[in-house]
């Protein structure tokens, strides 16, 4: 059986710099995969290539065996791949509910779009802020809104770009619960995250990148013990090491 997402030898060069180098992996239906690596390891570039926001120089990205590369961004979304942004991008002048209605509208959702949007907001625990302008939300709520808007596109695969960045420990705890709930609902997740401790609690597999390449891929504990990972990632980033130490 084909995996949900396949990345095959994905390479992305910017001029002389190779940001992502021959990266291959697959993500099975229902999995929760963490993507880690130091700054500049190529995570974000890879993330953009997977979601259609960037085109790989070579290689292929397939969803259920169908290549996503030729599709315009909105079709990538339409085919079931949704993303959030590391730096949240709400529609600031629109109320929270309207933010979530937009993807439902362009999907031509039948029935009451407002009610549907409210349901999505309930899933991420933001229903009580439905009428607020999104510009008034806290950072944690904005991350939820990002997630809700992505969920409203009806994704099979949800890619979260550093969902915990800029959040307090408390907020991370609450958001983790929400993400766990999505996992339980059967949403396939790929999460890019620096806060490894919090990430490991969520995922059942970790892919580690360094200098554009995959250096380890497997069970979280195994990956974290991998000498290459320790050397490349944890060795150079005391903060992350500390984070991981907590676990």
């Amino acid at each position: 059986m084909t995996a949900l997402l396949e990345a095959e030898a994905v390479t992305r060069r910017f001029g002389g710099l190779t940001a992502v180098n021959e990266v291959s992996f697959t993500v099975e239906q229902g999995a929760a995969v963490g993507l880690i690596g130091a700054n500049g390891a190529g995570k974000t570039t890879l993330f953009n290539c997977l979601t259609g926001f960037d085109k790989p120089t070579s290689g292929d990205v397939r969803l259920r065996g169908k290549s996503l590369l030729k599709l315009p961004r909105h079709k990538v979304v339409g085919s079931g791949v949704a993303r959030t942004f590391q730096i949240v991008k709400p529609f600031p002048d629109l109320p929270v509910l309207a933010n979530v209605m937009v993807p439902l509208i362009v999907r031509r959702t039948k029935g009451d779009v407002k009610a549907e949007a409210l349901k999505v907001l309930q899933r991420v625990g933001l229903a009580h802020r439905a009428a607020s302008p999104s510009s008034q939300l806290s950072e944690g709520d904005l991350k939820r809104l990002e997630m809700a808007r992505a969920l409203a596109t009806g994704p099979e695969l949800l890619l979260l770009d550093e969902p915990f960045a800029g959040l307090s420990t408390n907020e991370i705890g609450v958001l983790s619960e929400t993400i766990n709930q999505l996992k339980a609902d059967g949403v396939t997740l790929v999460i890019v995250e620096h806060k490894i401790g919090s990430l490991l609690a969520l995922v059942d597999r970790v892919i580690a990148m360094d200098q554009g390449r995959v250096i380890a891929d497997g069970e979280p504990e195994a990956v974290m013990r991998d000498p290459a990972v320790v050397r490349a990632y944890l060795g150079g980033d005391p903060e992350a090491q500390e984070e991981a130490g907590h676990e």
Binding site: T51, P72, R73, H74, A82, L94, V102, A150
Partner: peptide, 16 residues
């Protein structure tokens, strides 16, 4: 309006 607010976000929301 969503396009006016943020084009990248609109695309991520599936807006053609």
């Amino acid at each position: 309006r969503s396009i006016q607010q943020d084009e990248a976000a609109a695309e991520a929301a599936g807006v053609p």
